[in-house]
Structure formats: C-alpha cells, structure tokens
C-alpha cells in the first residue's frame, strides 16, 4: 500500500543542512499496524509527514497505492490525501474557533458530503467515542484525553484507508492514552491501516510491526505476531 525507495529528506535553515531521513526503504501492507520508534530528532515525524503526503521528500521515490507521488504538487497531494488518509497529532491540532462537532465534520465538508449525511456520520462517531455531551463545546473547554478522542474521530470520519498517528498519546496520561490506543487497535482490526509514531514501548507493543529509526536510518524492523508480546528493549536496538 505504501512503499518508499531510498527516501531522503534534508532541511536547510540558515545554510545549515540537516538530514532528517537518509535512504529509507520501507513498505506497509494494507491492514497492517506499524509503530515507528526512535529517539527525538531521528526522523520519525518526518517519515510520517512524507507518508501522509504533508511534505515531499528531497530524494527517492514514494509510492502511495501504487502511484509515485514524490514529485507531486501540494494541490495534487491534497487531492490524494482527501478521504484516503486520516491524521492524529500529539498536540491534537483542533481548531479553537470550531466546536467539537464542527471539528469532526471538517473532512466531510471538504469531501462535499451533504449536510444530512454529515450530521448522521458525526453523530454516530460522537456516540461511538462517547463524546455526545461535549459536541457543542470548544476544544479549550474539554480535557486533553477528550481532545485527542475528537482528533481521532476527525481522522476516522471520512473512513480513510490509512491512519497516521504522530505520538497520539504523547500529551495524555496513561488512562487517556490507553483509551486512544484501544481506538486505534479497534480500527486496525476493522481493516484500517495504521502507522503510529511513539516513544512508548508499551504502546508500540500494540502494533504488529515496529520500525526503529536512528539518525534518519531504519536500524531494525521487528515483524511480530500480533499475539506475541515479547519485545526487544529499546536500548538494545539503539545500542
């Protein structure tokens, strides 16, 4: 479903070049739950952004559902993103001026879904995520866990084929974090591909494959049975 070949990303600021990704090759099959781990600044989020077509690589190829998209303009990428990819961010990224309901509704609005259908789908998901009492609240009026649930709901609402989650539990306490992880696992079980960046080995454990990044390289890949809970400690991977 997703494939990168020799993918590199270099950021240039004030004549200083920083290599965020260096010749990364990886592939994600439809229906997989992949966790991406690694220390801060190793390129996890960059990989996720490129995978989600929020950014273009500097070099290399990137195939999204068989289409080579690395050189696409923002307009083309936006068209491809729409309806196919859902994003969940560590800092939730909700729009402060919109209510919970309106935040969730946003992707449907841009897909041109009719108001009646929109309302029904948002109501359904609000119920599913137990957010009905909060539907008319603004983001700053609800807790962090609730905000992240709203962000997940927004990512799910258009039934995307891939969910990209960038440290979705990073800003949450453990009980709220568990809640969000349970949501992602449920989604994956229902056939949605999930790629999640995380610092937490415990949450990475929910995935059926873990990719370790270090200094822009993939250093190890642990393909594991979904029910096999044994995992190499992170320190051993990164040395």
């Amino acid at each position: 479903m997703l494939q990168t070949k020799n993918l590199s990303k270099i950021f240039t600021t004030h004549e200083v070049e920083t290599t965020a990704l260096n010749n990364v090759n990886f592939e994600v099959q439809e229906g997989e739950f992949v966790a991406v781990m690694g220390p801060s600044g190793c390129g996890k989020s960059t990989l996720l952004h490129i995978a989600g077509m929020l950014d273009n690589p500097t070099n290399g190829e990137y195939y999204f559902m068989g289409e080579e998209v690395s050189g696409y303009s923002e307009r083309k990428r936006a068209r491809l993103r729409k309806g196919n990819i859902g994003f969940v961010f560590q800092s939730f990224n909700l729009i402060d001026e919109l209510t919970v309901f309106e935040n969730i509704e946003l992707p449907l609005l841009y897909l041109g879904v009719l108001a009646k259908d929109r309302n029904k789908r948002v109501d359904d998901i609000l119920e599913q995520l137990e957010l009905v009492p909060r539907k008319n609240h603004f983001p700053q009026q609800i807790s962090g866990g609730q905000q992240q649930r709203v962000a997940v709901a927004r990512a799910l609402i258009a039934n995307p084929r891939v969910i990209l989650a960038d440290e979705p539990t990073g800003n949450l306490d453990s009980s709220h974090g568990d809640e969000v992880m349970k949501l992602l696992v449920d989604l994956n079980e229902n056939g949605t591909t999930v790629i999640m960046v995380t610092h937490s080995p415990a949450y990475a454990d929910y995935a059926n494959r873990v990719i370790h990044l270090f200094d822009g390289h993939i250093v190890t890949e642990n393909l594991k049975d979904k029910y096999n809970k044994h995992m190499q400690p992170l320190s051993e991977v990164t040395g």
């Binding site: 989600g52 068209r79 729409k82 909700l94 729009i95 946003l106 841009y110």
Partner: peptide, 16 residues
C-alpha cells in the same frame, strides 16, 4: 497558519 494547515490536512483545497 496552524488552522490553515489543519484544514488542509483535513482535505481543504487551495480555493477553499
């Protein structure tokens, strides 16, 4: 800027 980015992530087109 942030709002625009979020909207774009959610599928908003340039025109919108």
């Amino acid at each position: 800027t942030k709002e625009i980015a979020i909207r774009k992530v959610c599928g908003a087109t340039t025109i919108r």
